[in-house]
Amino acid sequence: MLHAIAILLTCQLVGQVTVTALSLSLPGPVLGMALLVGLMLAVPKLYDVVRELSEGLLAHLSLLFVPAGVGVVAHLPLLGQNGPALLVALVVSTVGGLTVSVLVFSAVLRLVERGA
């Protein structure tokens, strides 16, 4: 547990520092995630160290978005008269993005698997 916490935080820290130092347009934790994948590929034993804590964190990933979600509700009045137009644009674009993305993935997957 202690080692797992240390590894996750260190990867995040290295990611954060690298992103800031090189002004990359990537969130620090995402770079930290890539770093941890790389570390596990190099030293497979690390997987056994971080597995339990990581799975625990991810099992309750939704919980971690609650504080930001409450912030959105608190700031909803700021949407003001643009609210309805923003919400319609948001719904249409999200449904559109979800649909196109899943259909393109499925179509290309079929092509690739037929070719293989």
Binding site: I5, L8, L9, C11, Q12, G15, Q16, P27, G28, P29, V30, G32, M33, A34, L35, L36, V37, M40, L41, Y47, V50, R51, L53, S54, E55, L57, L58, L61, L63, L64, F65, V66, P67, A68, V70, G71, A74, H75
Partner: peptide
């Protein structure tokens, strides 16, 4: 919201380590 976030930030903070933890299912 500011008062609320004083307490809730401890949960919010875990988003970073949880993002790093996504490495496990990727691996």
């Amino acid at each position: 919201y500011e008062i609320y976030f004083d307490g809730a930030q401890f949960v919010h903070f875990l988003l970073g380590p949880a993002t790093v933890a996504l490495a496990v299912p990727l691996y």
